[in-house]
């Protein structure tokens, strides 16, 4: 059971086996075809990706631009056709910030997800397949990673290195592979006893070939599961770190917007148009990750499906 997971996975349950590349692809499609929530999640991401790509065309202003009229800053403007979500206390367009914030969120989310899933998968594969001291070493490392408080570590890393979203990704890559690694390891332990692996070995396939061509595809859905959960986790983390004031001051993110609102007395002004939208965007994108994760879980652990 992982605390960061959506979730739902009872410890004792064995994931459904998947073998072969074709079956793998088919299964991924199946996730979205059969699970409406997963489909919704995918749509949310698709939407945010489109917004991020088209940001310069969607956003009427650039996110940090101070909008002026005859030398007067248009600060604290309420929502209007000109400023869909009003302006900040320093005359910046909130809607444009929201649009550009999707770039940061996706960038952090996807890169952290890839890092976490990649490291976790490789660790799990290697530990599970080779066993012995390699396994012991990697699993002790995972134990250590479980003992490090996550958010405090991110704060310390970001403060000591430099306020950058890459350091947030780094911190996630350093710690969060532990969940993925453990689960994949135990999956590999069962898979490697299966007949098709033995068959491959008899036909003279090398370790690497067996590992990556035969075993990996069958555990990939698990990597995807943890990867999709990591997306949300990363977006939340970036937002929290920015909110605490350790974010990159030149990068507009949803967390940055909320911090800006928090320190600029948006609450006293009753500027809901400033506080609510960034939080909703964070929530939606994190939820999308959970939805997709759930989709994978329902395929992997079919007994969970509603009766």
């Amino acid at each position: 059971m992982s605390v960061q997971s959506a979730s739902l996975t009872p410890a004792a349950q064995e994931p459904r086996p998947v073998s072969g590349l074709a079956q793998f692809v088919q299964m991924n499609l199946e996730v979205f075809r059969r699970d409406r929530m997963a489909l919704v999640g995918a749509c949310i991401y698709l939407f945010f990706v489109l917004v991020a790509l088209l940001a310069p065309w969607i956003a009427p202003y650039s996110p940090l631009e101070v909008i002026q009229e005859n030398g007067i800053w248009l600060a604290n403007e309420p929502p209007s056709p000109r400023f869909y979500l009003g302006t900040t206390n320093l005359g910046r367009d909130i809607f444009s910030q929201l649009v550009y914030g999707s770039r940061t969120a996706l960038l952090v989310g996807f890169s952290a997800a890839v890092a976490v899933a990649l490291i976790g998968t490789v660790v799990g594969l290697v530990a599970g397949y080779y066993g012995g001291w390699v396994d012991t070493l990697l699993m002790r490392l995972a134990d250590i990673a479980f003992g490090v408080p996550f958010l405090p570590l991110v704060i310390v890393l970001v403060a000591l290195l430099e306020p950058s979203i890459w350091n947030i990704v780094l911190a996630m890559a350093l710690l969060l592979w532990r969940d993925t690694g453990r689960v994949i390891r135990s999956q590999v332990l069962t898979v490697k006893e299966r007949a098709f692996v033995a068959a491959a070995r008899i036909s003279g396939a090398g370790d690497l070939r067996i590992l990556f061509l035969h075993i990996a595809p069958s555990i990939l859905p698990l990597s995807f599961l943890y990867g999709s959960l990591a997306i949300g986790w990363a977006i939340l983390t970036e937002a929290s770190v920015s909110f605490l004031g350790f974010g990159d001051p030149d990068v507009v993110s949803w967390g940055f917007m909320l911090q800006d609102a928090f320190v600029s007395q948006a609450m006293s002004r009753g500027a809901y148009y400033w506080i609510v939208p960034p939080g909703l965007c964070i929530m939606l994108s994190v939820m999308a990750g959970f939805f997709i994760g759930r989709g994978y879980e329902e395929i992997l652990f079919p007994r969970l499906r509603r009766s």
Partner: peptide
């Protein structure tokens, strides 16, 4: 439940503050 798990805690906190404290 998934929504509350996805919402940033500080944001929920800010909203509770605005409504119930301020």
């Amino acid at each position: 439940t998934l929504m509350t798990r996805s919402a940033p805690e500080f944001w929920v906190g800010m909203i509770l503050l605005t409504v119930f404290a301020f």
